[in-house]
Design a protein around this nucleic acid. Sequence first.
DNA 1: ACATTTACGTCAGCCATGTTGACATATTTT
DNA 2: AAAATATGTCAACATGGCTGACGTAAATGT
Lengths: 177, 177
Amino acid sequence: MADVNVTVLKAPPAQASNPGEPIWDIIELLFFAYRDFVGDPDEVLGKLGFGRAHHRVLHFVNRNPGMKVADLLDILKITKQSLGRVLKQLVDEGYVVQKEGAVDRRQRLLYVTSKGEALALKLATLQTERIARAFGSLGPNAHEAAYRFLAAMIDDENRDGVLRQISRASRPPKARS
Amino acid sequence: MADVNVTVLKAPPAQASNPGEPIWDIIELLFFAYRDFVGDPDEVLGKLGFGRAHHRVLHFVNRNPGMKVADLLDILKITKQSLGRVLKQLVDEGYVVQKEGAVDRRQRLLYVTSKGEALALKLATLQTERIARAFGSLGPNAHEAAYRFLAAMIDDENRDGVLRQISRASRPPKARS
DNA sequence: ACATTTACGTCAGCCATGTTGACATATTTT
DNA sequence: AAAATATGTCAACATGGCTGACGTAAATGT
């Protein structure tokens, strides 16, 4: 029996949002919540000589095996030079491999190794524990509420693409010869 | 009549959370939502030669007029050297002023100028528009749901302090001679 | 009264990770 | 054959974290 917190907090918003006035509470909560959220993996990453940039690359490669470098650049919205630096380290240390594309041999399709998958899972588990703890302290529809709120916060132009990518990721192992 | 989006999206979570498995959708949505959220102010800041570090300092000084430097360091969790760099620029360019503490004259209490307040408000308004748009596309209790989710995501040790700080911020103008 | 602690500032240098710009190489497309 | 595409690389620079050392003024403790 895990130590699950099932207390349903009755926390009211700090303010009634007057029209036109900044929504200070959500602005600040996003800052604090995100900082704690991304802070969890830092200790593990630090021991390996990696940073958050490595985490992001490893995460998305793990979730989208066989993705192109260009796709990764699109998701991360950084330059290929910035990506190249951290990607090279991940490849050199055996967390990621690049395979020549079968159909288009210019492509270097990205895959995690088992070592990389293990690390990605370890980091995701840390973050999942925080999320699960939060959901446990809220009502039964907490997951759906969080999903809808976060999805609605994404740029209109990106939202559909992101949601599609999230739902299809890690479904078919994208069988490759 | 503003162009308010009142469509209530019926977006289901991408996955039923199997126990012990990473909650991939929320992990990724946090990444994308936060990136778009903090991206809004960047253009404005860039024109002024400022970055996100300046934004954070300006934001919290605006919200907590008269705060001590030590308090700001606690909130931001950075070193005084890192803070000093951006704070000095904000002071030099007339966005923030430091006043000697009346009771403890070692303290340099921080206040935004009217120029600083105007910028803080401009940036907060950009982010508020995104949040309001999101809430508009969700149900009537979206604000409370988001508040509770984000609060639950904060470290247990910090949560009460953060919530207290959020609720009392900008209430009393902290009258000062 | 004097010693210590506290609040803050500063100098110097390092690191991680973002940027632009230019150029190279292999491969596919036209 | 020429042009476009996918990727890599070199060089230089900016931002914003960090550590360590040191300084100064004011408050606090004995």
